[in-house]
Design a protein around this nucleic acid. Sequence first.
RNA 1: GUCGCCUUCGUCUAUCGGUUAGGACCCCAGGUUUUCAUCCUGGUAAGAGGAGUUCGAUUCUCCUAGGCGAUGCCA
Length: 454
Amino acid sequence: MKSRFAPSPTGYLHIGGARTALFAWAWAKKQHGKFVLRIEDTDLERSTQVSVDAILQGMDWLGLDYDEGPFYQTDRFNRYKQVVQQLLDEKKAYYCECSKERLQILHEDLIKQGKKAKYDGCCRDKNLNIGVVRFNNPEEGLVVFNDAVKGQISINNKELDDLIIARSDGTPTYNLTVVIDDHDMQINCVIRGDDHINNTPKQINLYQALGWHLPKFAHLPMILGSNGARLSKRHGAVSVMAYRNAGFLPECLLNYLARLGWSHGDQEIFSTDEIVKLFELKNINKAPASFNQDKLLWLNQETIKSSSIENLLNNLTWHFQNQAITVTDTPDIKTVVQHLQDRCKTLVDMAGEVKMFYQDFDTFDEKLATKHFKDKTPLKHLLTKLEAISTWQANNIKQAVKEVCFELNIGFGKVGQPFRLALSGNGNAGSIDIVAELVGKDKALSRLKMAISF
RNA sequence: GUCGCCUUCGUCUAUCGGUUAGGACCCCAGGUUUUCAUCCUGGUAAGAGGAGUUCGAUUCUCCUAGGCGAUGCCA
């Protein structure tokens, strides 16, 4: 079994492409088959190296590794030319020099008559040797195929026309190159977006004209934005890498994408290995799905909570750099991350909270400071208590806070809250005693003094 | 216009003709908690519409509507 992902390098790797890649990848892995990456860059006008790099980077970040490739169609032009010539020789294709103007008038006319806009075969028997090359599509009969997702699909050849397989400059077009590549690369399971359903009958006719075996087809429904329209930037990020930047874990994105259109009963949370193990084409939904940021965020939080510290740290590296955070030996970053693990929705948040353990700040959140630093008495008492602590440990610190509460006859919050703000600068911190221990005695005391003189 | 595909809570989905139509996100109400968060309990909310097949249809068939896609010398 061999599947492939065949993006065209006309932009970054987007969410929809990533899901197609994931499904093709998972299906190959599950069956111990091979997964191929092929860059479909036959459109010289629109393809760019920047896009190729972006796609490769996206695949790499997601961990979607390929057994073969990346192959580039631009490296295979000779092969395509050879096949075009073969079809020409066998009278299964012909040159056509109809002008775009004639075609346009023809189409408008057909539409006016309530018919399907298609080429009329004008040049089919002219035996020309210049212009575009068209495939001689069968005029009669039904093309029927059994889609692994959609079920049986049939289209009448009357609906199809003689599609162009080579442009007038000799370069091949999409429908021809996919067929040749999928055949040559021995792809026997084509998994792609369902915007290709309409192309499939044309390709099947091409396969048959060339006497080649058909692969199995599986057409995935599209991913829509929150308003049911095609996913676009208005619905949040569409680029896969934007999700890394926003602090999502790659395995979370994979999990979310898998669950968008595929299901395994009621299960929501899957490790990447589980996706591979449980994946079945027949459990893919036929209907398009809308991308939902809220659920993705929830899933990221769940993924962070159950992730190993090592994995978190690996993924955090980029964010530390991005936020200019320098992690030093004390406190131990692993302990810090562990402490933060249950309280962050994204890695961006987490990196932001890591900051206070390694970097000082010179200002407090205005609003909170006005509220919590109004009465300095608790802080002053706390300072005295804390200075006296010889072993800087969470339980001792907690004890000190409790004593202050008792002595002043006030609630824990009256002391804990100002202390938390003093330590963090923004009030965003977890369990106060643990945070204080991790920040360290020197820093904790100096921040407390800073709060007192606020 | 024509052809193809699709249609269960706001969103993602479960359901092998018989269920009080289940789960998850969101939202709401409680509870735990030293902020936030976590955690726990409960709640609101769905089979596009119409025919047909059947003892019985969300499930099978057809029609209509709506959405998406194709109709490119894009992929």
